[in-house]
Each structure stands twice: as structure tokens, then as C-alpha cells.
Amino acid sequence: MADAPTRKTRDDAPPTAAKDLHADRALLAEAVTIAAPRADLYRFWRDPANLASIMENVVRIEPIYGKRSRWTVKAPGGRTVSWESVITHEVPDAEVGWQSVAGAEIDNSGRIEFRDAGPRGTVVRAVIAYDPPGGLIGQTIARLFQREPRVQARRDLHRLKQLFEAGEIATGARNRRLRQERNEDQRP
């Protein structure tokens, strides 16, 4: 008798897209393809001064010592949240992982992957896990105020793409005054 076919327990899709994720802990992945060399993107990402230029929610990133830094980020209701983050692993030109230290206001961890995409350049993929403040209700509120981490991650990756491909970050504003108004509109 022929062997019964082994049934795979999971399909080939990334686990971050699974339907049965734990409801209390948010897990997300966002990926973008950028027509630029992997090493250049990695080098850019490793300099906190660069990150503040593409991340609209980040107020500041302060180096503490070694692989530790303090992140201050805008939150709904005009608040900011702040936490200490430590780089847990890094593979040059390929991956950076981080974890918030114990006692962080928003417990979070994740990694940024840089993968060759042949003639299309480099795939930059962010995987982020976090405990949404205020649970699921808090997450819904954050989404309403455009402070939801998935939306933010997607936008930040797109600004990185614009900067590397187009050489500038696109704005639909007509002049400086309107650009300022639009930036304020994004504030909760």
C-alpha cells in the first residue's frame, strides 16, 4: 500500500499573514521593493539620524550606549510615548533585529530584512510585534488617528523608497505654507 500523503500543517504564506494570530499581540509585516543596492539601504537604516527623516511619527531617537537607544514617538491624542530599545542581532547588509527593554510603555520587537531582488533591486521587509496600548480598542483608536503601526511602517518604507529611487520625498502641497498645514493635519 502506498504511503498516505503527508499533509502540510501550514501553507507557504508568511506566518504574519495568518488568520489565527494571537489577538492581544499585534504582529505585522510590510514589504517594499526598492531599486537600490542592499548595502546602501542597510547603511542608511543603521544611522538613526537618517531614520528620523523618513519616519513621520518619530520625534527623536537618542543613542544611550552600545546597542541601546531611546525612541520617542507620537501617539493618539497629542501624546508621545517613549521606550528604550536594544539591537538584539544584526547581520551586515541583511538584517537588524530589536527588542524593547523590560518595562517599556509599548512592548515591541521586530526585525528589518534586506533581501536581493535581482534587477528589481532590494526587498526591504519590516516584521513588527507589539502589545497595542489599550488592547484592541486602543488599536482601533490609533488606526483612526493614523498612528497605527502597520500604516506607519508602510508609509515609512515608502518614504525610504521615494528617497532612494526618486531622490526626494513626494509632497502634494502647492507651497511651504500648505505643506506645513498638511503636516499638522497628520497630527492627532
Partner: peptide, 27 residues
């Protein structure tokens, strides 16, 4: 409004440019 540098622009599909639309308007 096309950037001329992204994947779609490289295929002359300018009306599908990935960079012309500001990130916050793409949602």
C-alpha cells in the same frame, strides 16, 4: 506625476508610478 526611476516607470508604465503619490496619500 511619475518619478521615472521606479519599477513601473522603468517599464514605461508611468501611470502606475510608485513614488509620485505621497506615502500618506497612498493608504
Amino acid at each position: 506625476i511619475a518619478c521615472g526611476r521606479c519599477y513601473h516607470c522603468s517599464k514605461h508604465e508611468y501611470a502606475a508610478c510608485e513614488n509620485g503619490n505621497p506615502a500618506e496619500n497612498q493608504d
